[in-house]
Structure formats: structure tokens, C-alpha cells
Write a protein that binds this DNA or RNA. Structure first.
Lengths: 168, 168
DNA sequence: TTGTATCCCATAAAAACCCATGCTATCCCC
DNA sequence: GGGGATAGCATGGGTTTTTATGGGATACAA
């Protein structure tokens, strides 16, 4: 699960360290020692958001989830085709180097207006990559809006666990 | 999984470099060192789309998937016969040369209005081959339409797994 | 011959790989 | 609990490998 927020440096070669937390999410090995992902890909997948000047990303498992979702739609549904083109076609496989960095293609960096500093935002199943400046503005609103909508934050599901502390 | 988009050159001899990403998708070897594809074919399979002036393609695994799909239809269903003729009969096996290129038959290049530059579009299980000009227009629409329909892109919550990493 | 298809080689640019260095958090031993 | 050893992380920079592409040589067929 992608959690937390951290800002790293985009160096002159276009490389950036993926937060160690994030790396361990995507490169979780199975017991056999083989990567959990069937195709042995060790890295992240990133594409330009279609909702603003930032990037979205996740592990290959996320892409498979999207694939499953899309494959349940009509093959020639316009929305499906649009999603395929906006996500699959625009995404890039970025694999980790020995130090846990990826090199970010220039056009993605430009799309997200990144130069120098880059902020990773963990959002559970996926994450976002922002220019720190652009993100600042949103972050303040988020807490306010969350407060206004706090009544909708109702957990469902798990029956009461044996005892120990519940809560958020 | 075919991901990303890239534009390569179609040279005077009708050859074109298949993006390295795509090559590694289709020529993934099994642990034994033998090609995963039973028949040892190392290349891609391409046919003219029946939905526009572009080509569709994939690995031999994709063709097998289509075969399985069609074999579940009535043998004399007109649609089945049409699909078989439009896909199987029109497709070409293009094998990689030592540098990862294939040579694209002229009639396919003409069908997709290719000259000089060629764009490969990764779409998960399959890919498409477009004239860059023709695709450009679609790409901008795709992002807009994806944005308009983004509420449909909802990943279902994974059921609570025993313990380790669940969904958001 | 004239194309056409295959194979081989050369090369520039880009990507991947390797090594080194501060810095921080953690561990462990006394 | 202090303090040094240790390990992991983020970062910089050089070097090697891969990739995409052009072009020559060879074999075969129309």
C-alpha cells in the first residue's frame, strides 16, 4: 500500500530515487524468491494524469487491475478506448536501477512541470508524482474538504475484531 | 503487457525497429530457456484493423486467445467466419532480425498509410501501429474523453485479504 | 537484370550499470 | 544510556551496454 509523501531530487540525467517505502510495495517478492509479478518486472509504471499536470503511477499489479476493469467493458465502447489510449498507451515502464532510482522520460517530466524537485504522494493502491509547488496549493484544500465531508468516512466491512484497538 | 507509445522509422527497405519493450513482451523466455511460445516463433503478428486505417498486432499468445474466443462461437456463425477471415487470414508473421527489426509487407504499410514514421501504441494485451499523423488527433481526444468518463474508472475494493496488503 | 528478402557490420545516442560518498537511523555492546 | 559500528537511503558521476538506424553483401525468384 502506497503511503506517505516525500520529495526527492530529479538529477541532471533525469533520474530520481523512488522512496524506499514505495519500492518495497511494488517489488514484494513471493516466498519463492521470484518476483511476485509474473513477468519479473521490478519497477513502477507511470503515465500523465488526464486530470491535471501531474503523473499517476503504480506497480504492474495496478495496471493489471485496470486491464481487468477495461476488459469487462465493450471492446468498442468509446470510453474504454479512451482509457486504453490515455493510460496504457501513454504509460512508461520505469525499472529500478541498483540504487532504487528510475529515469523519468523527459516528456513526462515536462508534462508534470518537474524540474529539480519531485513529490511522491502515496494514495493506497496508486501514487501520484507532482511538482512540489503545484502540490502545495492542493494539499491545504484537501484537509479542509476532508473535514467538510467527514461524515462520509464510514468504514464498512470487518466484523468486530477480537479486541485490540480499532479506529481509523 | 504492451505499454507505452513510441515512434520509429520505416526505412527504405521496409524495415522497422519494434520497440525493445514490445520485443521483451513477446519473446519472454520460460525458465527452461526455451521460448514460451510452443512453436519457437520469435516475432510479432500483425493484421489490418477492421476499424480504421491502422494495424493491430500482438504476440502469438494473442492469436491463440482469439482462436479460443472464436472456437467458442458457432462454427457457421457469420460473425465468426468474418472474424476468422479478417484476422487470421489477413495477418502476417513478422519475425525479428538480429537487431530487433521486422520488415513490414508493403500492403500493410499502405493500408495504414505509413511512410517514414510509424507509431506503436501499447494497449495491454495487444498493440496498434499507426501513422503518427493519424494517431495524433486521436490521442488528444482520448485524454479529454478519459477525463470526462473518469468516474467509470473505479477499481473495485479487494475483499479483505487474510492480512497483507489490501486495497484502499 | 531487377527486385526482394536475409544476413552481417558500423555508429551515434540513449539507457542501463557500476562505484563512491555523505547522511541518517538503527543496532549492539559495554 | 553513551557511543561506536552498521546498514540503508538518497545522490553524484563515470563507464559499459543496448537501441535504433543506415548501409553493404549475398542468395533467390520473377
Amino acid at each position: 500500500m502506497f503511503l506517505s509523501r516525500s520529495t526527492n531530487t530529479l538529477d541532471a540525467k533525469g533520474r530520481i530515487s523512488v522512496p524506499a517505502d514505495f519500492r518495497s510495495v511494488v517489488s514484494a517478492k513471493s516466498q519463492s524468491g521470484v518476483p511476485a509479478d509474473a513477468d519479473g518486472f521490478d519497477g513502477i509504471i507511470v503515465w500523465p494524469s488526464f486530470d491535471g499536470p501531474y503523473l499517476e503511477g503504480g506497480g504492474i499489479a495496478l495496471l493489471r487491475d485496470y486491464q481487468a476493469l477495461l476488459e469487462n467493458m465493450d471492446p468498442y465502447d468509446d470510453a474504454r478506448i479512451a482509457f486504453e489510449r490515455a493510460i496504457f498507451a501513454e504509460s512508461r515502464r520505469l525499472s529500478f536501477d541498483a540504487n532504487g532510482r528510475v529515469s523519468l522520460p523527459k516528456e513526462l517530466a515536462e508534462y508534470a512541470q518537474l524540474n529539480g524537485q519531485v513529490t511522491f504522494i502515496g494514495l493506497g493502491r496508486r501514487f501520484e508524482i507532482w511538482s512540489p509547488k503545484n502540490y502545495e496549493a492542493l494539499a491545504v484544500n484537501a484537509r479542509e474538504m476532508a473535514r467538510e465531508n467527514r461524515h462520509r468516512l464510514r468504514l464498512v466491512g470487518r466484523p468486530n475484531p477480537p479486541s485490540q484497538g480499532g479506529g481509523l
